[in-house]
Design a binder for these strands. Structure first.
Lengths: 143, 143
DNA sequence: ACTTGACTTAGAGTGCACTCTAAGTTGTAG
DNA sequence: CTACAACTTAGAGTGCACTCTAAGTCAAGT
């Protein structure tokens, strides 16, 4: 389709990254990524680096970082290497939050599993009771 | 405050469960819980069972179940024991989703950890370089 | 020449899950 | 008697993160 010199159209980038083209434009509008370079026809062309950055943003989002936080992170990134310590701090904080979230999920999941087992126990018992009565009927052992 | 015969006010229930009083009323309005019994002054009084159910709902929410799904679950619950198999099915499906979500979190967390280590490595190196040059200055070993 | 389809924009609309407001009632403490 | 705090309601408002719309441009294919 293209003379693919390693640049992707918005549709292609969207597919690779797993975000919609709409969302890609939205992320650009709100400053999560620098203005994407354009082909001669004004269409966006995403470089390997652009895709890498968007992919990382997507992972931050998927682990629950808010758009606001990501904007702050993107801003720091734009300010260059001097902000590396701050960015590391942000990532560490985020890591902590994700880990805390996972701890909660684990705990609640255990309760849900407990409920499932409880209910399955009740169902199995009921099943057994029916089996039993059916057998009695089949063998004419009623009453 | 109350002649606590084991019934909680909305405020107390909210605190115990970890949801706001607003949210408790909201959950009642949208049918996530039956209409709560009232004291003579029309104020809600939450029983131990009410609190248990709301607590369970909260855990479902916290693990990512949508309000819609919880409404479906609450409806089944109201229909009684015949719906137990369906409810178990729902819980099992939800368990699967939570586990899948946790897998994604684990994977993305690994990448974030990798970034942190990478950046910390860079920072440590830079630090070392400064140390080094400072030492050279201190010892008059410049140039 | 015309159609098709992928893109462009600014800005409006959507869905979710709350969260709050305003006006009113009730029960207790001073 | 009065003040206050805690509750009540219906319904409006909020914040988040998209998601879509409408109108337009452009390049390629028939």
């Amino acid at each position: 389709m293209n003379t693919h010199d390693d640049q992707l159209t918005i549709q292609e980038a969207a597919e690779v990254i797993g975000l919609s083209a709409h969302t890609l434009r939205y992320y650009e509008r709100i400053g999560l990524i620098h203005p994407i370079n354009r082909a001669s026809n004004t269409h966006r062309r995403y470089t390997r680096d652009d895709v890498g950055w968007l992919d990382f943003l997507n992972k931050l989002r998927a682990t629950g970082m808010s758009i606001r936080q990501m904007q702050a992170y993107a801003q720091l990134q734009r300010e260059g290497d001097v902000t590396l310590p701050e960015r590391v701090e942000m990532l560490k904080l985020h890591r902590q939050e994700v880990e805390a979230h996972m701890d909660v999920l684990r705990e609640f999941l255990k309760l849900i599993c407990y409920k499932i087992e409880l209910y399955e126990g009740i169902l199995a018992e009921a099943e057994a009771a029916i089996e039993d009565s059916t057998t009695r009927i089949e063998t004419g052992a009623e009453a």
